[in-house]
Design a protein around this nucleic acid. Structure first.
Lengths: 208, 208
DNA sequence: ACAGTCATGTTAACAGCATAAACATTCCGA
DNA sequence: TCGGAATGTTTATGCTGTTAACATGACTGT
């Protein structure tokens, strides 16, 4: 296992000035994103806040876009981890599937800027199509696992793929609409909308 | 004096140099958005391309954000019109409802930058909550009409609201995921994913 | 018709941004 | 120890949004 340079590894102190600048930049970027609603990060601002010259970051990133991609990778990793934790907490089966959906939306709402960045532009890595081996694909793996727990294993793969896209679209759209201020950020609403589709096998945990 | 033949003139002739600059800026903005994937419009670029000084636009827009909002308003108007046309083309009932969903996604895919702009940031007007009287609310009105055609009129308004959010989230998420390159832009896929929910008819009925 | 006001344009200037080129330093392996 | 690679700095270029001060043309009230 190679050391993943992307991970947020804040060595306690005495770190970066002549240490690991790349990691420090990513850590600070995440920190700034966490306290912002819109991902308008600036290289200069990061460098300044890091006590380093503006152009120093070019030794570690090809440009602004490269830094943003690194942050996006971290974002998708966190999202996947959050979903995985929610699924485990819920046990298994349909409940776990719904939990991943709710976790998706809640993570997005809790991390607006990072979520926006993660899915911004066409330059981002294609999550669904990649071979789901990397650590950053936990999100899609959770989706597939959820599908498996709801649809019988013998269902045609076309149905499974369609269901996956359906579920993903639902939570993704709900998250985006909430972030756009078009739908209220109400846990009850989120749960209800998600349950409506994610429980599709049996329908209606919510309707009773 | 030279009338710029490139621009899509809203006002018939005798255009903008000492005419209607605001309209010209919006028209050019839309034109530029149409040939771009990402809404990185620049005030200076627009002014330059319009043959006018950079600061002239400040006589008509409070700032860049204001111009973007004007463009977003035009975007939501076009989206609603597209949905309305699709619904009428489809006749009525469930088919029309599905058609509005497909139209939503297809319009978004056909106008990536404008669609992104329309739903970017929290500063945009809240479509769902406003009183649906203005011309720009056709999109939400279509959504409600579609819901009405699928859910029985006597259904509790909570169910109707939930169904509306559900449908909206689905198409919105599907559009965004396609634009993010995560789902293939395949008409067959769009139709299938949309039909899955928009034809639910039964989804809510199951609960009763 | 004339004067004044207001809408609309102009130029100049400021601060901030991403990025590139040339230069300096530090570190590490042969 | 020496030389090159890695890392950081200064300087410079050209972009951006935005403000301030100034010009000018058109409309309006008397």
């Amino acid at each position: 296992m190679t050391v993943n340079a992307n991970t947020v590894n804040i060595k306690s102190d005495e770190a970066y000035h002549h240490g690991d600048l790349r990691a420090a930049a990513i850590a600070l970027g995440l920190e700034k994103l966490a306290s912002q609603e819109v991902p308008d990060l600036g290289l200069r601002a990061i460098a300044r806040e890091l006590g380093v010259s503006a152009t120093a970051l070019y030794r570690h990133f090809a440009g602004k876009e490269a830094l943003l991609e690194a942050l996006a990778a971290e974002g998708i990793r966190q999202l996947g981890a959050s979903q995985k934790a929610a699924a485990q907490r819920a046990g298994g089966g349909t409940a776990a599937f719904q939990a991943t959906g709710v976790a998706y939306v809640e993570w997005a709402v809790a991390n607006p800027a990072l979520f926006a960045l993660t899915f911004a532009g066409k330059t981002r890595p294609n999550l669904a199509m990649s071979d789901a081996d990397g650590d950053e694909n936990e999100a899609f793996r959770q989706l597939q696992a959820g599908i498996s727990s709801v649809l019988p294993a013998m269902a045609p793969s076309a149905d499974r793929a369609s269901a996956a896209m359906h579920a993903w679209s639902l939570v993704h759209g709900l998250a985006n609409l909430i972030l756009a201020g078009q739908i209220d950020d109400d846990p009850q609403v989120i749960r209800s909308v998600v349950a409506h589709t994610f429980g599709l096998g049996g329908g209606a945990a919510d309707c009773a």
